[in-house]
């Protein structure tokens, strides 16, 4: 168990700046998810914590001690890789026991710990198999098992579920969360999937092009995004953005953001904003209605599945509560 601190961490590959100064304080036992689009530097940040990438500037501390110069094996961490990175020539048992053997753990202790981990992960029937004789989900579990037997101070995960199919992903997500709760190990988890981030995180870090745009509890981030990027990235379907100038009212900032579930379809007479229905997606519990305003801006409305669905091509009015509006400056910052 440990705390992890990132203090103005920067990374450059040659002349290319990739991480532009990230600050993060992770409490003991906390589950932090780093989320962001492809190429924003999530893996790089995680690999710096792991000691697989050097830190160009700033400081990383684990339990208060600077680890910038420490080798990966001296950081008391375990990592689960996207491609699992199992040792192909070893059995499942040996894969899990590898770290313990190197640490010189007594044989019976190794056997006991591997058995416990295998029990937790339902891997008992496969202990003698080689990784290539396992399914993707089973390999994923072995990778998890390899991480937990060592009882590290920090778990690092780099998109561990992205090679699994949708159903298995949901199931493993739940298992990871349960395991982490049970073990209470400080965890840093990287994903580009915002649903994964929302469901797993105690706090999440939304990364945008090498910067941490916002750090906070998932629901806080969702309901109160600090930047236009965060508002657009977290939430599906994404926030609607409208040109404030063209809306011609209460223009605060350059753009106005409004979440699809906050937009209502109302009779045209009741509002000054209207549009034509491009198409509707009835999903059962809810319906997504995609509209185009008269001046050509796209708006998505998310309404209860029981509400009437307007015809395609029909014109209708739209409205929302002013308190749900989010205003963003030209720079993307919330105003």
């Amino acid at each position: 168990m440990a705390t992890v601190t990132l203090d103005n961490v920067r990374k450059a590959f040659g002349k290319t700046q990739v991480i532009h100064g990230v600050d993060l304080d992770i409490a003991d036992g906390e589950f932090i998810v780093i989320v962001g689009p492809s190429g924003c530097g999530k893996s790089t940040l995680l690999r710096m914590v792991a000691g697989l990438e050097s830190v160009t500037e700033g400081e990383i501390r684990i339990d208060g001690a600077r680890v910038n110069e420490a080798e990966p094996m001296d950081r008391d961490i375990a990592m689960v890789f996207q491609n699992y990175a199992l040792y192909p020539h070893m059995s499942v048992f040996d894969n899990m026991a590898y770290g313990l053997k190197i640490a010189g753990t007594p044989k019976d202790e190794i056997a006991r710990r591997v058995a416990t981990a295998a029990g937790m992960l339902q891997l008992e029937p496969y202990l003698k198999r080689r990784p290539r004789e396992l399914s993707g989900g089973q390999r994923q579990r072995v990778a998890m098992g390899r991480a937990i037997v060592r009882k590290p101070a920090v778990f690092l995960f780099d998109e561990p579920l992205s090679n699994l199919d949708a159903k298995l992903r949901v199931q493993m997500r739940l298992e990871i969360k349960t395991l982490q709760r049970e073990l209470g190990v400080t965890s840093l988890y990287v994903t580009h999937d915002q649903v994964e981030a929302m469901t797993l995180a105690d706090r999440m870090v939304v990364m945008n092009a090498g910067r941490a745009d916002q750090i906070g509890r998932p629901l806080d981030v969702y309901s109160n995004p600090k930047t236009e990027f965060v508002a657009g990235f977290i939430g599906s379907p994404p926030t609607n953005f409208l040109d404030a100038a063209r809306l011609g009212r209460r223009a605060k900032g350059a753009r106005l953001g409004i979440r699809p579930e906050h937009v209502r379809i109302v009779p045209e007479a009741e509002t000054d904003l209207g549009g034509t229905v491009a198409y509707a997606e009835p999903l059962g519990a809810e319906t997504l209605i995609h509209l185009r305003t008269l001046d050509g801006q796209a708006i998505t409305v998310r309404q209860d599945g029981a509400h009437p669905i307007p015809e395609e091509g029909a014109t209708c009015g739209i409205a929302w509560e002013p308190r749900d509006e989010m205003h963003f400056a030209e720079s993307g910052q919330r105003v």
Binding site: L52, A85, Y87, Y98, G99
Partner: peptide, 12 residues
Amino acid sequence: SVIEAAAIDGAR
């Protein structure tokens, strides 16, 4: 990543 995993597992 296999080599990296081994490094993290403590192997020099």
